[in-house]
Design a protein around this nucleic acid. Sequence first.
DNA 1: CGATTCTTTGAAAACAGTCAATCTGTGTGG
DNA 2: CCACACAGATTGACTGTTTTCAAAGAATCG
Lengths: 208, 208
Amino acid sequence: MRSYDLIPIIKNALLAMFEHFETYLQANADFTKEELKQICAAATARKLRRRQFILQEGEICRFKIFVSSGLLKTARIKEDGTEYIMRFTAENTWTTDRESLENQTPSKLNIEALEDTELVLFTRAAAHELWQTIPTFRALSDKLIVNHLDASQERIFMNISYTSEEKYHSFITTYPDLFNRVPLHMVASYLGVSRETLSRIRHAQLKQ
Amino acid sequence: MRSYDLIPIIKNALLAMFEHFETYLQANADFTKEELKQICAAATARKLRRRQFILQEGEICRFKIFVSSGLLKTARIKEDGTEYIMRFTAENTWTTDRESLENQTPSKLNIEALEDTELVLFTRAAAHELWQTIPTFRALSDKLIVNHLDASQERIFMNISYTSEEKYHSFITTYPDLFNRVPLHMVASYLGVSRETLSRIRHAQLKQ
DNA sequence: CGATTCTTTGAAAACAGTCAATCTGTGTGG
DNA sequence: CCACACAGATTGACTGTTTTCAAAGAATCG
């Protein structure tokens, strides 16, 4: 294959990402065709290979990120160098470092692809522009924020009240799909439990 | 004192709460005098005695709550009956069960006064009405939501990455004011650590 | 003051973390 | 296709931390 043949292929792949994103938008709010066009026009598509980063600690976060396909992990490093996973972001969900993006402050987070991943990106300016002109888009963003808040509250309750065993159970029932795609030691990091402990818990579960 | 003398006294106390609330509003956003009046007109004032509840598990949450003075604790009960404290709400801050209030679903939370407390209350309908008519009020509410989200993320990181000792330290530096007003066993419950462990940690700290 | 709530302490048991070694599966390059 | 490297998972032994239970002491409220 000659190199200039790549161009239309890449274009098609990017178009597919937007199509997927449009389907998501239509399923989650009542946008007019005009609005859908406007939203997609404001976005850019990007592909990430496994292990590539879209945000690294210290940078100022540049995008609101929609995952079309693939899987991201968002992690934070403690002073001692240990990595703790704040969340996973699979296809059809959003992520960003909201604080860094909105306040233009250095991020404490690393966002990295766990699989080859397709993204739809909005700069802060693009997102603000869309919020101004498309109330439905603003409403969708607001819904995402409060969903994230509710989920965070639930997770805090889990963190302070569940035993390690209950945390493990809660994870596999809340995210059964993720469980098969994420290495166990990352689940452990997400739950705040050592990998060995989680391995032993799982082993004990299998017997029952 | 004859009973009918109480009436103006109560009225004055309630007026003082609104004055306090107005001061808060003016300090945190640019409201016109007209808007301030409208906001206060949409609210009701209430006093809570220590140990009284403004929300109990199973009820549908009725209010957005601003604390003029005093202190609330928001807690959730695990199936085994143990209480875990989700947050404390001191003067000049807000609380509610957002999920229950907006979705009109039964609450999992108990909100109780730890001190005699003065509240300014907004029903769901009143809040929505104000959001419609006063964009600045909407913006303030949005700011509160994202602040709560950012704080929740920080707390999750603390939950999964800090040792008990670090959690204790983090609490007294983040909420030095609260620390003197809240019994230690409630701080323990908030942090997800047993009261005995927290007592021992504090004891060890004092020696240094 | 008496009752209640809160805190502390001790001792034992349960639990989780660490370290080191081994095992497993996957995928890459020769 | 095989061998090797690598990432991930498991296991054992040990250590350290945390919980639990029980009891006693301190503080606070009515």
